[in-house]
Amino acid sequence: MRWLVLAVGLFAIGAATGCGPIQVSSAVKRANIAMSQAQLNGWDKDCPYEITAAEGYLAAAHDLIGRSEFGAATEFADKAARLATSTQDNAARNARTRQIRESSQKETSEPAPAFPSEAPGTGGAR
């Protein structure tokens, strides 16, 4: 009986202290993978906002891990992952927008196609 209590106690302690680090490391890993993909595919060049924010949130997550703030660190790492992932969609749209702007400045007499309707900057700090 004593052993059982001890095992449950140890499990509870482990769960209480171990879950946070496990979750955060998983979130950080996701964020890192997403950022690597963005850089590998060149999406980061067309998404300076998303990639800079992702880097900022990831740095904050690391900082919070150092202070054992695993919950907040996970939250920040998740944001970083979302932002880095969003570069895949936003890169094409931003590149097209830039193209339109450049062409409208060069050949102003030609009517430009309509601007994409969706709002830029998904996954902002909230």
């Binding site: 800079t52 900022g56 949130y57 830029p120 900057g121 902002g124």
Partner: peptide, 25 residues
């Protein structure tokens, strides 16, 4: 002014939003 900031100062906008999140936290 989000759109103009996003268009022309994306990095500063990102840094500002991260810093605001941290300040709140």
């Amino acid at each position: 002014h989000r759109e103009s900031l996003y268009n022309c100062s994306p990095k500063a906008l990102a840094n500002a939003e991260v810093a605001i999140s941290l300040a709140r936290f």
